[in-house]
Design a protein around this nucleic acid. Sequence first.
RNA 1: GGCCCCGUAGUUCAAUGGAUAGAAUAGAAGUUUCCUAAACUUUAGAUAUGGGUUCGAUUCCCGUCGAGGCUACCA
Length: 589
Amino acid sequence: MNFITDAAAKAIKHLYNTDIAAGDIGLQETRKEFEGQITIVTFPFTKFSKKSPEQTGHEIGAYLQNELKEVAGFNVIKGFLNISLSDDYWVNSLYNEILPDDFAVFQPNGKKVMVEYSSPNTNKPLHLGHVRNNLLGYSVAEILAAAGYEVIKTNLVNDRGIHICKSMLAWQKFGNGETPESSGLKGDHLVGKYYVLFDKAYKSQAAELKAAGQTEEEAKKNAPIIREAQEMLQKWEAGDKEVISLWKTMNAWVYAGFEETYKRLGVNFDKFYYESNTYLLGKDIVDEGLQKGVFFRKEDNSVWIDLTNEGLDQKLILRGDGTSVYMTQDLGTAQLKYDDFHMDKSIYVVGNEQDYHFKVLFTILKKLGKKWAGGLLHLSYGMVDLPSGKMKSREGTVVDADDLMDEMEQTAKEQTEAMGKVDGFTEAERLELYHTIGMGALKYFLLKVDPKKRLLFDPNESVDFQGHTGPFVQYTHARIRSVLSRAAVSSISKTNIPAKFDPEERDVIVTLSKFPEMIEQAAEGYSPAIVANYVYELAKTYNKFYHEKSILQAEDETTKQFRLQLSIASGKVIKKSMALLGIEVPERM
RNA sequence: GGCCCCGUAGUUCAAUGGAUAGAAUAGAAGUUUCCUAAACUUUAGAUAUGGGUUCGAUUCCCGUCGAGGCUACCA
């Protein structure tokens, strides 16, 4: 649609002798009740046209119609210039944009982007919050790839630290040598079980000490089990053989569990980073910062940066005893990632509770003069809350990812069977279908919401399968497939397509033609929600169209051709956009 | 206290500063001779509040109220 804004800018230059950037001219879809497909709002131009909005619209419209063969006509209502594009234009966009195999895939733009997401802790299984993170990260990576970037998906695994020791210690104490094999539990769930057990034991010990007269703070510090965990962490850092061996064993259990969950979710990674390898990084950056005078040292030898000029606080970079903090490590890891890949952009998919941390991180890197720091972006998303409040792994009040996926598939099974949809299916086909539908419902449910908004999830109300949902879109696609197979057409040749479009169908085609723009827009804003909401609108339009046409004009030859054409186009858009979101589309359901 | 984010139908979500604020669910009433009713049709229902900016504000700015987050020598 750039050609319209370009021409409109020229029109304004020609008519009113005013320079205006084509990008500043807003296009929007014409509302259904008016004639035309594309609308330019002319109110802003009246400042320099010195004419009424209507007259300005007429003048620009006449210019466009005269200059552009694609513009078939226009009408003006108040400050709205509604443009009708020619049938040729729509036919061409069908051939040139939608039917080619590389539909909605942009040429490589030569830029590299890293998307870091998931970033689990190895002391507990994944929960619903991680699911949102994983789906956002994965779909953003796919959207960027479709928009022409070379994408590197990374996962920074938090595999060390006091919380890992807690699970390990509890397993040593209460585990009796339990393994995933002996217990039949998935590895990550087994380890998570001991993390919860630790917390229980810790709480009861702290309560005892408190009853014995200690303050709450003292009790929390002095509980024997937390001391033991701290000792274990020190042993780990010292490379103690026994501790390291236990750590490796339990982490291996967790990784096996994660792999299963990732696979089921349909996400993957190109590169793993482990904090056990990166937690000592960043000290050279501290030296660099001190040398450049960006950081300063306090009397107790700790290192700080003063960001009060940026509206932030003073922030600790290195402890007085020379050990790292979170920030030290992240500074080092950022440098490591850049050295490994030299990417133009790097996106961190991390919850909004860490907004402050990333603001500080990016500011520091810029102050250090890292030229790549400008490409860093925190894709911040809202927490997933339950009606009862925040999820807490320690207290076991979480919606577990594996359980959730089980439930989704179970619901898909029940509803599908109740509708008698799978009578001719083999057992394997059924299972695959339940998985596709269940996961489609879950993914769509999480992705259609603006990432930055907090998301409320009620476990007692199952995720909808009807209405504005993944299964609805999947169903639309399946129905289109069905049309195509009955018509025995797998592709469409130019001669089959009538040159004329009925206005009603044209409305649909207008929508279709916008899809590549949507991808660019989504890539720019890193928002799967844009793609998701769009494809739903499309599916709905198709359904309405299908009902009206099939009932009223089933025998009309022209209409059949339109329908077929529309089916191919919308089936393609739906399939493509679902793929971008990481949602599978079934051939039939 | 300081900083950040968010307040839209009963509920869950939409709306680059543009036309009559859209959907879906839940509610009410209908539609299976049709390429598959996971669908379709009809109906009722919302911008927290007070100012400001402008041709025009859900959107931008300021205040108030409300919810959440951050404000660790945890990660």
